[in-house]
Structure formats: C-alpha cells, structure tokens
Simulated scan of single mutants.
Amino acid sequence: MQDTVAVALITSLSTLAAAALTGLVGALSTRRQLAHQLTVARQESVERRATRRDELRRDAYVGFLSACDQAYRQLDRRWLDAGGGEPTPGYDDTYAAMRAVDEAYNLVLLEGPAPVSAAGRAVLTSLTTEYADQRRFGDEPGDGSAPLRDRHRERWLAAIEVRTKRRIAFVDAVRPALGRDDC
C-alpha cells in the first residue's frame, strides 16, 4: 500500500510540476506577446501623430502660399492700375489680402519648424515692404494717370524678383519639414 501511495504521490507531484512549468512558460510567452503588442501600438501611435503633424503642417503651408498668391494678385492690380496708384484710405482689398497672409503666417509659426517660420517671415516682410512702397508711391505728387508700374519700373521689377526668391526659399524650407528632401 505504501508503494501505491508513493506512486500516487510522485504522479501527482509530477503532474503539478508539469502544470506549473506549463503555466510559467505560458505566462512568459503571453508577457512577451503583450510587450510586442504594446511596442507595436506605441509605434503606430507615434506614426499617427507624425502623419497628423505633417497634415497640419502641409495645410498651414498651403494656406500661407494661397494667401500670398491672393496678396500678390492684389499688389499686381495696384501696380497696374492707371490712376489707381493712390490706395484708398483705411481698409481696402490689398490690406485685406495682407491681413490674410498675417493670419496664415500665424499657423506657420505654430506648426514650425524654425527654418520654415523664418522663411515665411521673409515672405511676409517682402509683401509688407512692397505694400508700403505702393502706398508711399501712390501718395507722391505727379502723373496719376500712369500706372505705378510705369512710374516706378525699377522698384516694380525688384519687387517681383524679391517675391520669386522669397517664395522659392519658403518652398525649399518646407520640403524637408514635410519629408520631401528628394524634390
């Protein structure tokens, strides 16, 4: 009888040891799987945030460029208006377009990075300078029937060149920020 009890005891202990070992191996395997799933979830979260950041940046940059285009059109109208060189006092279409560029630039400032913000500031500064020049030229006495472009041709050509250079510099700063270094 003692042999039977010993065999039963050994059998139960080995069964318990096998169950414990199986449980331990299962727990370690589950832990490893959960750690892997957590790592994958974190990576996906980082990628989603990066994608969202890139979308917000792109939208801000496109909005800024669109506002600049609208301001350029308004400035061009002023350069080409015969007798319209004198800006209307206060709030006019060109001023409204300039304000839209300011507002779009605020988003560029928020989204960054610093090189893009600096390039945007240069674009904004050139637009503001051109607008101020037009207002100053419009206040000058002289032949109001000739467009500002004809009366101040060198300044008009210089303004167009500055616009082009600043815009290209902005786009060149934007591409790396959006991961588009290959362009």
Rank of each mutant, 00 (worst) to 15 (best):
V108A: 04
R31P: 00
R42N: 12
D102E: 15
A173Y: 00
D150K: 11
A17Y: 03
Q37V: 07
Y95L: 13
D59P: 01
G144L: 13
S66N: 09
R153M: 05
G138T: 02
D3L: 12
D143Y: 13
C68I: 05
P176Y: 02
G23Q: 15
D133M: 11
C183R: 13
L124S: 10
L75N: 06
V101A: 08
F170T: 00
A118V: 13
P115R: 01
L109I: 06
R175D: 04
S14D: 01
A132Y: 03
P89L: 09
L24G: 14
G144F: 06
R136E: 10
Q2Y: 08
E130C: 15
A96C: 07
R58P: 00
D69Y: 05
R78M: 07
D102M: 10
G63Q: 04
P115H: 01
L21I: 11
D69I: 03
E55V: 05
A27V: 05
P87A: 15
Y91F: 13
A96V: 14
R149N: 02
R163W: 09
T51A: 15
V108P: 01
W79T: 03
A146G: 03
D69S: 06
A19W: 13
R175N: 07
V116G: 00
S14G: 06
Q134M: 11
D81K: 09
M98L: 15
G90D: 14
E47W: 04
A27C: 04
G85Y: 03
A27H: 05
A50T: 08
R49K: 07
Y95H: 10
R121A: 13
R136A: 13
Q37C: 02
W156F: 13
A100Y: 06
L127N: 10
A96M: 11
S12V: 12
H152P: 00
A100V: 05
P147L: 08
A35P: 00
V108T: 06
V101D: 00
L65N: 04
R121K: 14
V40I: 14
L157T: 08
V7K: 07
D172C: 01
A114L: 13
A27I: 02
R32H: 04
T51G: 04
V174K: 00
A41S: 13
P87I: 06
T128W: 11
P147Q: 14
V40L: 06
A20W: 11
D92T: 05
E161S: 15
